[in-house]
Amino acid sequence: MNPTMLSITIALLFGIGTFMILRRDMIKVAIGITVLSHATHMLIVTSGAFLGGKVPIITSDHESGSGIIFMDDIAAGVFAPIVPEGTEMIYSDPLVQALTLTAIVISLATTAVLLILAYRVYQEHGTTDLNEIRRLKG
């Protein structure tokens, strides 16, 4: 998918999410955070070094010897990995996918806590209006 268009979408989602978390309504804030999280997850995947390759599942045993250097040699100024010219990347970046997976699960956990918390706050304060929830001030 075109990264530029995707970036614009993500940024738009950030704008919308920001608007939502500025609302007075507790549940809307939670939903806004969810929107922001979704945008962030898409963002992480988009930040992959190479997009649009194959699914990162190796179907046959990969043959090594691609010529990529994986060793740093600081003295010589070699900062691994060094990829020779013309090496073609056939898979999409697996690292960002793993990171996103971690981020998704973490945001599931935190959002769950946030939601239950919102429910408990409602129970204690009797309202979901954040302007009313201001016992702590000054």
Binding site: I33, L114, R135, L136
Partner: peptide
């Protein structure tokens, strides 16, 4: 009071998530 605690955590968590 528990209400205070929850309010504080709510603020903490929301700001933190952002």
């Amino acid at each position: 009071k528990m209400a205070d605690k929850l309010e504080a955590i709510f603020k903490y968590l929301v700001l933190n998530m952002v």
